[in-house]
């Protein structure tokens, strides 16, 4: 099975790295030795915040150092690879720094699905597509099997947490691409124990991926944003309705 999908390595690391900080001491203890007193104070404050990082304004407050000193020191620390700038999902305008040895926490990144402060839509849609196709092909699948298939496909170099695959499946359920069912142990569920949570495709697949259009949503009023304001004799009325004019244009 060949998948021609490439996720840039940098994004991969961010969105797929195992949760929690990677505690590898910086190779450069010598580098931190060569710091000035002020740079050392700043570095310690930043490091003490671990995977939460710290906002530049807060650094200034906590270290009592002058703006210019802080700015200069930050440059030095970044140059020495001791700290890094990170994007905080909650406030993309604020500059945040973190010691290089930590991976940004969920609060900072927005969770496993965020990369550099952005929802990693490329990765998500790839995984959704992949999972949906597998389920379509095999009719009924369980979470374990899907995880396994993703792992064995070899397209992702990092393992996904179980929760992440659940997220993907849930998104597919909410999109009405698949449904979650309990195995009955017979028929198409024969290979799964009774009561096991399984996923199977909805008939929507056969309709070309769009949910069935209802009767009400096929007429202008069903999809009308102004329906609550519309009255027979009012300013917005069926007689003068522009949506109808458009609908009846043929």
């Amino acid at each position: 099975m060949v998948f021609t999908f490439h996720i840039p390595a940098t994004r991969m690391n961010r969105s797929l790295g195992p949760p929690g900080p990677k505690r590898k001491r910086p190779e450069s203890s010598s580098q931190s030795d060569s710091l000035t007193e002020q740079e050392r104070i700043l570095y310690e404050v930043i490091r003490s915040k671990q995977d939460m990082g710290i906002w530049t304004r807060d650094m200034k407050r906590e270290t009592n150092l002058q703006d210019s000193v802080v700015n200069k020191s930050l440059k030095v620390l970044v140059a020495k690879n001791l700290i890094k700038e990170v994007v905080n999902i909650k406030n993309k305008g604020k500059k945040f720094y973190m010691a290089a040895e930590f991976q940004p926490s969920k609060e900072i990144t927005g969770g496993a699905w965020y990369a550099e402060g952005q929802l990693d839509t490329a990765l998500i849609s790839f995984l959704k597509d992949f999972s949906a196709k597998q389920i379509q092909k095999q009719r009924v699948l369980t979470l374990d099997v899907i995880s396994d298939l993703i792992r064995r496909s070899g397209v992702l170099k990092v393992d996904l947490a179980e929760q992440q695959i659940k997220d993907i499946l849930r998104a597919l359920v909410l999109d009405d691409e698949i449904i979650e069912v309990l195995s009955t142990g017979t028929g198409e569920f024969a290979s799964f124990p009774v009561g096991k949570v399984c996923y199977k495709c909805t008939s929507k697949g056969a309709r070309g991926g769009e949910p069935k259009t209802g009767a009400f949503s096929s007429v202008p009023c069903g999809v009308c944003p102004r329906i609550l304001l519309c009255t027979p004799e009012g300013v917005i009325s069926p007689k003068t309705c522009v949506y109808y004019n458009k609908w009846l244009e043929f």
């Binding site: 909410l174 009405d176 949910p211 069935k212 259009t213 209802g214 009767a215 009400f216 949503s217 069903g222 999809v223 009308c224 944003p225």
Partner: peptide, 16 residues
């Protein structure tokens, strides 16, 4: 199906 179809077409996929 009927209600969801209206939600999807009137308010979009997020709402759906």
């Amino acid at each position: 199906d009927e209600v969801e179809s209206v939600v999807l077409k009137r308010y979009g996929r997020t709402a759906y």
